[in-house]
Design a protein around this nucleic acid. Structure first.
Lengths: 180, 180
DNA sequence: TAGACTAGAGAACGAACGTTCTCCCGCGCA
DNA sequence: TGCGCGGGAGAACGTTCGTTCTCTAGTCTA
């Protein structure tokens, strides 16, 4: 049984991801969540706080899903490439519209410090995870950095073109970098 | 002597890039351009059309600047890496806030088909240019694809972290890919 | 010079926004 | 049963938006 917060953040995540932040009104959030406006404002102070809470929750879930897949491979040397396998399935999900954090940063990075911070923290955590995985596989920190760039590049490219195969190309490049 | 269109698109480019699309009102555009509202609506049908015209003009200028730098090197084999040299200087410009097209797509990609098209076309043209340069340098199409991903990854990462050194890391990875 | 047209400055408009307020129903307790 | 209170539904508020309209001053032509 989902809590009110779950219901609200589910609605916010879906709508903000689909349409962006400013294009979604509080009324749409109310209708999609089934919660009265009063309850929404009691749970969070306002629209910005909802977006930040949504991004934070999504951050946990997203990195969990990535780690669950990448760490599933018993061989540490295979794990960096497993990141891109998971990425491809994620890019191919219905309604995929790029990286929620990149999108949020593009729209609100300069006007909402709280959201800008949430994005920076998420991206830093992902880079850190990639670095751990790559170095455990015997890669250098420089290789880890490159693989993070490939990851970001594949997400943004697939988001715009709609073609999940960017993940396969990124995987191929990552494999080359790991071997050299 | 700049035309009214130049004045308007200069203002639009500066303001939209700094704050995003929806955060900039027509009044701000009027004030920054020095043009009466009536003239603005006579030049373009509305706000969306201004954004599209701005992106199109920026596309020409951006790709010209990139090509001017990358094609300056007389040795075709060096040109793919020259892309990243130029990228680093661009990422280091004052007020850099990531890729204008990625930002626009994140905010408006799902609500404004005209803007989504402008972004897709720009990205396709850049990918095509990179492919030409890389293949002229002896790289494979697969390598060209990877280098485009590194380019996108560096732009988005530098935009969020504010650190232009992402271009150097991308350059290093590109060099490795070109050698293998 | 007289008149018609252009274009500038900004008021005005209707819609939509985030947020708050009002009203009232229904439950818990004495 | 009577009373009080928390919370639901949605109207209302003030603001801001994109766009259009009004009024006026200037300019070109016959």
């Amino acid at each position: 049984m989902p809590t009110d917060q779950d219901r609200l953040l589910d609605a916010a995540e879906k709508l903000f991801y689909e349409r962006g932040y400013q294009a979604v009104g509080m009324d749409a959030l109310r209708e999609a969540s089934g919660l009265p406006l009063k309850r929404i404002y009691a749970l969070y102070g306002g629209k910005d706080a909802i977006a930040v809470a949504m991004l934070d929750r999504r951050d946990l879930r997203w990195r969990h899903a990535l780690a669950a897949h990448a760490s599933h491979d018993p061989e540490p040397a295979h794990r960096p490439l497993a990141i891109f396998d998971w990425l491809e399935t994620w890019l191919a999900t219905d309604g995929h519209r790029g990286c929620a954090w990149i999108n949020a940063y593009g729209e609100l990075g300069s006007t909402s410090p709280a959201i800008a911070d949430a994005v920076r923290e998420h991206k830093a955590r992902v880079r850190e995870y990639v670095a751990d995985i790559v170095e455990a596989a015997g890669g250098t920190p420089e290789t880890a950095h490159s693989i993070s760039l490939l990851l970001e590049g594949a997400m943004v490219t697939a988001g715009i073109t709609g073609d999940p195969s960017a993940a396969r190309h990124a995987r191929h490049a990552a494999a080359t970098l790991l071997q050299s």
